[in-house]
Design a protein around this nucleic acid. Structure first.
Lengths: 331, 331
DNA sequence: CTGAAAGCGCTTACAG
DNA sequence: CTGAAAGCGCTTACAG
């Protein structure tokens, strides 16, 4: 009845629980005979050490709390995949917690992790600085991911500037001169960084934007509407760089509607490299989401096992260009 | 220095730790004044109860272990999303563990969960019965998901037969009479169930298959090759029902290549409802993956809080038809 | 090399 | 309503 404990093993092997503990943990100060007796007893009883009890006495859970917003799809799964891979390599389990809409629950969720995890990886794009301060148990080491306004905390963000700049350079290199940008909206920091870098890269290439960036909202429809507006306005342009892939796909649709050939007349580029982008041949900026997750674990584990001087609080994850059909050479 | 413990709160409020414990847990046998003093002290110290210690004395972690294969994309994220939603509603945390390629590690991974979780949700499609038996800590309640060969254990699987039958009926109802099936291979149980139901539904409709099912492997290329084979063989057919969406997409490509109009000449249907299917207008069978995850939690929690007679060991998750462009009415 | 004992931070009969 | 004490299943100085 009930799972066998270290006591049962000790009794069966006729040794103290201390010896069982030492044997189970591979300490070297255990006589080979004793060790063998203990191994036999453990096996016979089907003994599995109680990880919770172990954590309590070691004050170490070897678990990492992962706090994420309630999000769907690829980004989420890639991030968790990267976190998981790095965590299991480093010998850590993952304790998952979603912060659903309610901010009060978010603080609550993080509190209930205390005493279960050694540190936290938190993605809370919609949190402000104050909410973050209120929610994060001060004592738990943490790394923020894709979270603006991290303050002094260790954090990881996508290198929006690099990605945008490279994409603009690619467009210019393939002969485009009148490159329009569709933004993700002023409220979003990633969107602002992308459009800022677009302007800068254009200037660097000695080019003028053919018009002001068209305001979008990261939704597919915004891309479609942007093209309609450009056509209505009679703007002359030969490329569209959208702040994300969904808007780029919308733009593709708008161009088809307007009878403008891609990439023949107009080049189209996005940002994110969602699975659809690959399937539909959209040129875009690839984010290594899994790599970002893995890097978060790396930094957290380094802090936990303080084997490192921490480096900059905010670190950027590099991007790569995925050049596909929609930015083919001009004719 | 160090996090405040229940002791510190007790000292500050000048009561015993027992009273603090009772107050923190909302027991009713605490004098209001005492309760207030304790609340003040806890607040002043920033006290957060240590969940690990709590688990140990309650012999209850309120955590569910989730053991998954190393998989990517939509299926994974949907499943975890469903599990997470139901778990957090029921007041459980999720402890995630990937069973990577190595089967020895899988057993190890499940062992390290003992004492951290109250039960397990396991998805191990590539495991056999014996591996499963060897890996699952006998004492931990568990629910298997999308795992063939579950034996007597509680398990959840997709209702392949229902989905296939409905799809065949839909094709028949929209006028198709010569429906070809592309299978996912004999080695895969889901594939076998889908093709079995295809045959049965056809027979039920009084129809003959125009040819033997074409053997595939769930990859896109298999769908393309299947069409080429049908064309080469001169098989007369007016619909293709592929055992999954990727093969259906391959078939679409093959039909385009062969100059056969969809859905005008040939209807195409898949199985899975991956995001691409929606985007490309592919008619398919939708699986409620998130629902399956949520249901797994429900059953596990019911077992943990044994508020229920368990019902059948194996339960099937229903499917729904997503009727889109590729099976439009015949002309 | 080994064991008795204290401790990790909680909860909960038990007695008052 | 409250507290002293035992216990959850481990680990680890300490003494031998």
């Amino acid at each position: 009845m009930g799972e066998p404990t270290i006591r049962d093993v000790a009794a069966r092997a006729q040794v103290s629980v201390a010896s069982v503990s030492r044997a189970m943990n591979g300490a070297n100060n255990v006589h080979p005979d004793t060790r063998a007796r203990i191994a036999d007893a453990a096996k016979a009883l089907g003994y599995i050490p109680h990880a919770g009890a172990r954590s309590l006495s070691l004050a170490r859970s070897h678990a990492i709390g992962v706090v994420l917003p309630d999000l769907h799809g690829e980004f989420f799964s890639e991030l968790v995949r990267g976190i998981d891979r790095a965590a299991s390599e480093a010998g850590y389990h993952l304790l998952l917690s979603n912060i659903h809409a309610d901010a009060g629950l978010a603080a609550q969720a993080m509190r209930t992790m205390r005493g279960r995890v050694d540190g936290l990886i938190v993605m809370a794009p919609q949190f402000g600085r104050t909410l973050l301060d209120a929610s994060l148990p001060g004592s738990l080491p943490s790394v923020l991911v894709a979270t603006p306004d991290a303050g002094e905390r260790a954090s990881l963000r996508i290198d929006n500037a690099q990605g945008s700049a490279e994409m603009v350079r690619h467009l210019v290199a393939t002969g485009r001169r009148r490159i329009v940008h569709v933004t993700g909206g002023q409220a979003n920091l990633d969107a602002r960084e992308r459009s800022g870098a677009y302007r800068a890269a254009l200037a660097e290439a000695g080019l003028e934007p053919p018009c002001d960036p068209v305001e979008g909202d990261f939704q597919e429809a915004a891309g479609l509407l942007a093209v309609r507006k450009l056509v209505t306005d009679g703007t002359g342009f030969d490329a569209i760089f959208a702040a994300n892939d969904m808007m780029a796909l919308g733009a593709l649709q708008g161009l088809r509607e307007a009878g403008l050939g891609v990439p023949h007349s107009i080049a189209v580029a996005g940002f994110d490299d969602i699975p659809l982008a690959r399937y539909l041949g959209l040129t875009t900026v690839s984010l290594d989401i899994a790599g970002m997750g893995a890097r978060a674990v790396e930094r957290l584990v380094a802090a936990l096992e303080n084997k490192t001087g921490d480096g900059p609080a905010e670190e950027r994850i590099g991007t790569t260009l995925a050049i596909r059909d929609t930015t083919g050479g001009m004719t």
